[in-house]
Design a protein around this nucleic acid. Structure first.
Lengths: 353, 353
DNA sequence: TTGAAAGCGCTACCAG
DNA sequence: CTGGTAGCGCTTTCAA
């Protein structure tokens, strides 16, 4: 069975308390005693039972993270940054994926709360924050990332999504697009605000908003490539079709580009594309994808810091809203002066043979 | 403060034991009593303290996962599958990223073991399993995934990496490559065995093994695109250069293809490429990438099942080694009858305008 | 400098 | 059916 403090104490003719103090570097322990204890601890490869410690101290050094999809690089990156930042302070991260399912999310949060987390970080899959009121009644402090709820004040870390929408749309207009469409995201704050940004940018440039240039998709997971293609086919059937498309995220943009090339059109000459997320493989794609960077890493870092500060505070600190600035990353999919990507043809001869 | 069983018991004039039983669905409780308890539980939004429960039952319903890099889709996929499978049984997953650093990995494992995990799942970043002997001495059962250690028997779930190497190399030879090179991975089991497979395939086809056709890279993280490009440049300088390259993983292959196109060569006509991992964006790449599928999802599922079976067993069951078959996924990067990808030129006119 | 006693919130065991 | 007692492994408090 596992070694306990009691065992070490008995071995050494000391009390459990003494062992406990040595392990936590209390300074009211004689040097010789300390040495003996540490020696035995090493010998037995003893490791304190953090569960028991947590029960008495009320601190678990455990932080929960709930994301809609671990496979989406955006969330994976947040998880990684969070994990790195928290590890340094002795915290572990307990991660749970809600699969974009609000019910599952709620169950998972329940589960996690039972584990006496010191804090909970949530990229929520739901449209309203109401169910989080229950979390609020618990002692556990929580922080929303990426997605927040209107009229539901909470700690939040994310980017300025409206600015992201403006940045993307402005860029398309700057490269000469005259009919800018939007494949929008779900009815959560980033989806809503990027759409707002899109509309604002159009207005600022004196361009008319056409609802047929906006298609809505339901999900944001990596499979959304398919949805992007479907949405794009709908856009291609409008008359005249758009010559620039701002997509809610990069996978949607990838699908949209696929559909465009399949239709025999050229990117970005006929239609330019910009996504959002700036995924790490964006510049290796068929058509390297222009994108809005979402600062996933910094979101993770900021959320970690915020969580730690809340935990450290004696009294619950004032709510904080940390908004990072998105930035534009230009690649071939909007570089109209550059290469025109067309669907390569089977019968096309190679220049190199 | 948080509600405890004691509070509910006092409210209802019952004992703590009764509350406890109701919550765990014991059937020796009167209907009326049960109702009353459940009502109050709901009213107070009570959630049992799993830490306390864990302390007495000795089961934490917590499973640890240590991966080298959460951002690598292969590991993210394993994590996701694991999480899904375990959640159904009431387990939570506590994830830790070692950043491919053996020392960090060891620290993390230590941390996790202190948390009384019911099982630990490790994709290890180290070259030898020796340090895991310490885990062995603990009570915590553990399972290796993806990477195992020679001469170090342990529970393992992964693919047959030698078969993967053979499959890939065979395929390159089948599409007509005569000088097959290998950008190999690190000195861990998949790197070693895929290389072995490569050599075996060459031998089986009566082809000579040339050491100058093998370049070694140090890491496997997503950044390895850069390393793939460097390795490829070295291969391109051999005389004659290879006409087919099997890359240890997909990011390496992406980089290698970049370097090849930059050198003005065509893919796959001049040089064909195959990777390993079958990442979900492989078919949206500049040159859609042929790859060996590693069954990440099934690895996660199998590992979950194995972990649960070990936990459920009264006596520690015999070690198991679960080896899944890799499979070939052909895309454009080896489709020599198909499109020839060349670096698009700035001055190239678009056919569509 | 050391340690005895009490208790964290819960469950196992057994008596009524 | 219900509940008292003991105890999980640790830390806190305070007395020696």
């Amino acid at each position: 069975m596992a070694v306990r403090m009691k065992d070490i104490a008995k071995d050494l003719g000391l009390s459990v308390v003494t062992i406990s103090k040595v392990l936590r570097n209390h300074d009211d322990i004689g040097d010789e005693t300390r040495e003996r204890v540490l020696a035995r601890v090493k010998e037995l490869n003893y490791r304190p039972n953090l569960t028991a410690r947590s029960l008495v101290t009320g601190r678990s050094y455990l932080i929960g993270l709930v994301v809609p999809d671990l496979l989406h690089p955006f969330f994976a990156e947040i998880a990684k940054a969070l994990s790195t930042a928290l590890r340094k302070k002795g915290y572990s991260l307990i991660i749970s994926s809600s699969e974009e399912d609000p019910e599952l999310e709620e169950q998972e949060i329940d589960q996690l709360l039972g584990r006496q987390l010191d804090a909970l970080i949530i990229a929520s899959a739901r449209k309203t924050g109401e169910p989080l009121r229950r979390v609020e009644k618990q002692v556990t402090p929580y922080i929303l990332v990426d997605r927040e709820f209107v009229g539901f004040p909470a700690n939040f870390v994310g980017i300025d999504d409206e600015a992201a929408g403006i940045l993307a749309t402005d860029h398309l207009i700057a490269v000469g697009c005259e009919r800018v469409a939007h494949i929008r995201g779900p009815e959560i704050s980033p989806g809503i605000r990027r759409f707002e940004g899109y509309k604002k940018s159009l207005a600022q440039h004196g361009m008319q908003f056409h609802s047929e240039y906006v298609v809505a998709e339901r999900t944001v997971d990596v499979q959304s490539r398919q949805l992007g293609a479907e949405g794009m086919r709908r856009l291609l059937s409008t008359q005249p079709p758009p010559d620039g498309v701002f997509c809610y995220n990069d996978p949607l943009a990838m699908g949209a580009i696929d559909a465009t090339l399949e239709a025999g059109l050229s990117v970005p000459r006929d239609i330019a594309f910009i996504g959002c997320g700036n995924l790490h493989y964006d510049d290796s794609l068929r058509v390297p994808l222009s994108s809005i960077d979402q600062q996933s890493q910094r979101i993770g870092e900021k959320a970690a810091r915020l969580a730690l500060s809340i935990i450290a505070a004696k009294i619950p600190p004032r709510r904080r809203r940390i908004i990072l600035d998105p930035s534009l990353v230009v690649r071939a999919s909007t570089d109209r002066a550059g290469i025109a990507y067309r669907p390569p043809k089977q019968d096309e001869p190679s220049r190199n043979r």
